[in-house]
Simulated assay, not measured.
Amino acid sequence: MKHQQIHPDNDVDRLGQQLSAKLSTASLDLGHDISERLRIARQLALKSRPPVVIMQRRMAGSVQSQGTLTGTPEEGLNLWSIFASALPILALVLGLLVLQDMQSDDVTSDIARIDAALLTDELPPDAYTDPGFVQFLKLQLVRTAAND
């Protein structure tokens, strides 16, 4: 189902033009002093009107009838917008790679310490099958690291 975009600004402009035409035809029958006061009032109203640039900015970021936001029509994909969009993704990927590298180094160094402790100690063969032996080795490594 296609929604038709309704532009209330066009309706307001059309209504303003119709009203202006009716006022212009009705002002022909007025006297000179009244028409001069109306002319001065119109000039004051035009001076107090906000500049066109501000009104275009308001219309550029408006909400449509479907509830979607619209940007400026000249907004496109330029080099800076592509770079700004890709920068957070690039930072995330680099952060994940650094974390993975750090974790793999920690695991590798733990395994190397355990292997070195196993190869340098004289233990009975039953000790290697004990489930708490790895915990014992880790405690020994922590104690020796604290003593160094």
Rank of each mutant, 00 (worst) to 15 (best):
M1G: 13
H3Y: 01
I6M: 00
P8Y: 05
D13F: 03
Q17F: 05
Q18F: 15
S20V: 06
S20C: 07
A21P: 03
A21L: 13
K22E: 14
K22P: 02
K22G: 09
L23W: 06
A26G: 05
A26Q: 14
A26H: 08
S27F: 14
L28P: 01
L30Q: 08
G31K: 03
I34M: 03
R37N: 05
R37H: 07
L38K: 00
R39C: 07
R39H: 08
I40D: 00
R42K: 11
R42P: 02
R42M: 07
K47I: 08
K47S: 07
P50H: 11
P51W: 00
P51M: 00
P51E: 03
V52I: 10
V52Q: 07
M55N: 12
M55I: 11
Q56N: 13
R58F: 15
M59S: 14
A60R: 12
A60P: 01
S62M: 09
V63P: 01
Q64M: 14
S65F: 05
S65I: 10
Q66D: 08
Q66I: 07
G67H: 10
G67Q: 13
G67E: 12
T70K: 13
T72R: 14
E74L: 06
G76K: 10
L77D: 00
L77Y: 09
L77K: 12
N78Y: 01
L79Y: 07
W80F: 07
S81C: 06
S81Y: 06
A84V: 00
S85K: 14
S85Y: 15
A86L: 15
L87Y: 06
P88Y: 02
P88M: 03
I89R: 06
I89C: 02
L90P: 00
L92T: 11
V93Y: 04
V93W: 08
L94A: 15
L96C: 15
L97H: 09
L97K: 10
V98I: 13
L99S: 07
L99D: 07
Q100S: 14
Q100I: 12
M102R: 13
M102E: 14
Q103T: 10
D105R: 09
D106M: 15
T108F: 14
T108L: 14
S109K: 05
S109N: 11
D110C: 05
D110M: 12
I111G: 02
A112Q: 11
R113P: 02
R113H: 08
I114E: 04
I114P: 02
A116W: 07
L118I: 06
T120E: 13
D121M: 11
E122W: 08
L123E: 00
P125M: 01
A127N: 01
Y128G: 06
T129N: 03
G132N: 14
V134C: 00
V134T: 12
F136W: 10
L137H: 02
K138T: 04
L139S: 06
L141S: 01
L141M: 09
L141N: 02
V142Q: 06
V142E: 10
T144V: 13
A146K: 02
D148L: 08
